[in-house]
């Protein structure tokens, strides 16, 4: 038996490091690791896989022992001689895993994670980035929510500024002249309210039409304005969407620069909103080329062509949605 110690342990160690042993085991693990996750509870299927693994290891070891011509006793004695060496213990781990389910499980979980990381790497290399569905969903949601909140806050702030301005102007206007712009006022909101009216539809429905006006800013502002100065239709000029200035200002005899300033602010705001909105949309669409709508044209064109109008409608719908949210926000406050 003395000659055993000469070559058997070496041969066993050699076999445990050879492709004849390592490749079938690696194949097995790669093929079966997908069910292994790092949940606390084990699945019943793990046991099935573990059984198959045991059989594989047994078969491989039996084949090896037959081929080399050593007995089980010799093999076991060789294995015992490994106990001292840490390196050889590591080599022996796949054998230990046959009888140690937790060890087997951790090997499989590890392999599964490796494969997942590899897959992610491949996807990254191919696409230059991960599709959103593979990034952490929670984080993305938070980011989106934060972005949304930022926009809402910004809008609210601006809205408040404008409201203050408006109230100031209201006071001034009341003092100055009561019924100056009612006819010109009606034009602009009408043109903008893409829902049912066309421009110049009616000159007698200022309050209604302004209510129908779809820009979120307008909707927002109307609420406080109406409650503050209900019945005063002429109090609502600030609500008029941008660009309506072109049509209204010439008709307006007054030298008042307030509406212009308002319109400018509105325009700025709607532009900003649209940009933010588009950014969000672009993110959601995940790297798909940005839509032409991205280039921010100045706020809604009241006298736009029919084609533009339909595009406008879409945009306005988006804004309406945002406005809903804003309103909730305002009401909650």
């Amino acid at each position: 038996m003395a000659e055993d110690s000469e070559w058997v342990p070496e041969s066993v160690a050699g076999f445990l490091g050879s492709p004849d042993w390592l490749i079938p085991l690696a194949d097995f693990m790669e093929n079966h690791c997908s069910v292994f996750d790092d949940e606390d509870e084990n699945k019943l299927s793990y046991t099935e896989v573990h059984q198959q693994y045991k059989h594989l290891v047994e078969r491989l070891l039996e084949n090896y022992m037959q081929e080399v011509g050593i007995s089980e006793q010799q093999f076991l004695r060789a294995c015992s001689s490994f106990t001292g060496s840490k390196d050889l213990q590591a080599v022996f781990q796949p054998v230990l895993a046959t009888d140690d389910f937790p060890m087997f499980r951790s090997l499989m979980v590890q392999k599964n994670m490796e494969l997942q990381l590899q897959a992610l790497h491949v996807i990254k290399e191919r696409n230059g980035g991960l599709p959103e569905c593979l990034t952490d969903g929670v984080d993305v949601m938070n980011e989106l929510e934060q972005q949304e909140m930022k926009i809402l806050q910004e809008v609210l702030q601006r809205s408040k500024q404008e409201y203050d301005l408006e109230m100031m102007a209201l006071g001034r206007q009341e003092r100055e002249d009561q019924a100056s712009t009612s006819s010109s006022l009606s034009d602009a909101p009408l043109g903008n309210s893409c829902e049912t009216h066309t421009a110049g539809d009616s000159g007698t429905r200022q309050t209604n039409t302004t209510n129908g006006s779809v820009t979120e800013a307008a909707e927002l502002k109307i609420k406080p304005a109406q409650s503050a100065a209900s019945g005063q239709a002429e109090a609502l000029p600030a609500v008029r969407p941008p660009l309506s200035a072109e049509h209204t200002s010439p008709e307006r005899p007054r030298d008042d620069c307030r509406p212009l300033a308002d319109e400018e602010a509105l325009q700025q705001r709607s532009e900003y909103l649209k940009q933010q909105r588009d950014k969000l949309q672009a993110r959601k669409r995940d790297q798909t080329p940005k839509s032409p709508a991205d280039t921010p044209p100045a706020a809604p064109e009241p006298k736009a062509s029919a084609q533009e109008m339909s595009e406008e409608k879409k945009r306005l719908q988006k804004r309406k949605h945002l406005a809903e949210k804003l309103r909730e926000e305002v009401i909650r406050k």
């Binding site: 045991k54 047994e58 070891l61 039996e62 089980e72 006793q73 076991l76 294995c79 015992s80 490994f82 106990t83 213990q89 022996f92 054998v95 230990l96 046959t98 009888d99 140690d100």
Partner: peptide, 18 residues
């Protein structure tokens, strides 16, 4: 087969060093 398993088990305990 069973032999190998039982034998392995005793070896494994030694290998674990426990």
């Amino acid at each position: 087969m069973g032999e190998v398993q039982k034998g392995l088990f005793s070896v494994i305990e030694k290998l674990k060093g426990t």
